[in-house]
């Protein structure tokens, strides 16, 4: 068991013929992900991956032809919202948007729409999702994680790799690792993923990687205190970030009186979460 993706996931790649799309499709296929189709408008009829993956002009045509139930998006930022709407309207259950730098106005419109339908959106600006040994959707390097019982959820990409790798050094594995992305408006938040881990029989404990900006970590703390039985350990990045500066991620900014790391750490500790001083401490905290 796992959450969101597994060996039955039939994946479609939007933007499959672009540099990044092609490179990561290769990586996903070698990992064993079932990539059934690609979409690039204007390139329908072509094949990629040595003739193994067909390319279609639209998500709807691709989904009808291949039975795809999930999509991963690698299109440039200016086309990302359109790509998400397209996948949602084609009825896909899961959309993972890797694209970085999507305008916040576009994401507010996307989120307002997505909230009205059943589709689950991860990202944008996220590394994707990995169920070790079964399916990798996105760009998380497959070799840094092994199957196990730790559920991981994170707002950041490489920080997630850091923690998966640290777990692996201690021979600890992950049930599923979910990147929710670093943007202020995204498709899925901590609580959504924490509740899935709480329900998932394969997950025994959870590691949560937050960062400065917004109040999602505080809300997660309340959820953990009231609804979760499984132990959670956390790390919050940006403890030394100066207020008012955008720390790379559009979401990572401390604004007048909210979003500071100290507030998040306090809320989490009060909820019984063990908060690490640095990410390499996390495996022992979960031990």
């Amino acid at each position: 068991m796992s959450i969101l993706v597994n060996k039955d996931t039939r994946l479609l790649v939007q933007g499959i013929t672009g540099n990044e799309g092609l490179f990561h499709t290769q990586q996903m296929v070698s990992y064993g992900t079932n990539v059934v189709a690609g979409v690039t408008p204007g390139k329908g009829g072509e094949w990629v991956m040595d003739g193994k993956v067909p390319v279609f002009d639209s998500v709807k045509i691709a989904a009808e032809a291949t039975g795809a139930n999930a999509s991963v998006i690698f299109v440039p930022a200016r086309f990302a919202a359109d790509a998400i709407f397209e996948a949602a309207d084609a009825g896909l259950e899961l959309i993972v948007c890797i694209t970085e730098g999507v305008p916040v106005k576009d994401m507010m419109r996307v989120r307002a729409y997505i909230d009205q339908i059943e589709t689950r959106l991860l990202g944008p600006n996220c590394p994707g999702i990995l169920t070790p040994g079964e399916s990798k959707v996105g760009i998380i390097p497959g070799n840094i994680a092994i199957p196990g019982n730790v559920g991981a959820v994170s707002r950041s990409g490489t920080l997630t790799y850091e923690v998966l790798y640290a777990l692996k050094q201690k021979n600890m594995g992950a049930s599923t690792c979910v990147g929710i992305g670093g943007d202020p408006v995204n498709g899925t938040n901590f609580i959504d993923v924490l509740s899935m881990f709480e329900e998932d029989p394969a997950t025994d404990k959870v590691v949560m990687l937050g960062e400065i900006g917004g109040t999602d970590e505080e809300k997660a703390a309340e959820f953990i205190a009231t609804k979760m039985t499984k132990p959670v350990a956390a790390f919050i990045a940006g403890q030394t970030a100066p207020p008012g500066k955008r720390m790379g991620h559009a979401g990572a900014i401390i604004q007048s009186g909210s979003g500071a790391a100290a507030d998040k750490i306090k809320a989490l500790e009060e909820a019984g979460v063990r908060v690490a001083k640095h990410p390499e401490e996390l495996p022992d905290m979960l031990g």
Partner: peptide
């Protein structure tokens, strides 16, 4: 590389 890891690196240097 990566914003989250870059912030973490600043944090750990301070730590």
């Amino acid at each position: 590389n990566g914003a989250g890891l870059a912030m973490t690196t600043m944090d750990i240097v301070t730590l």
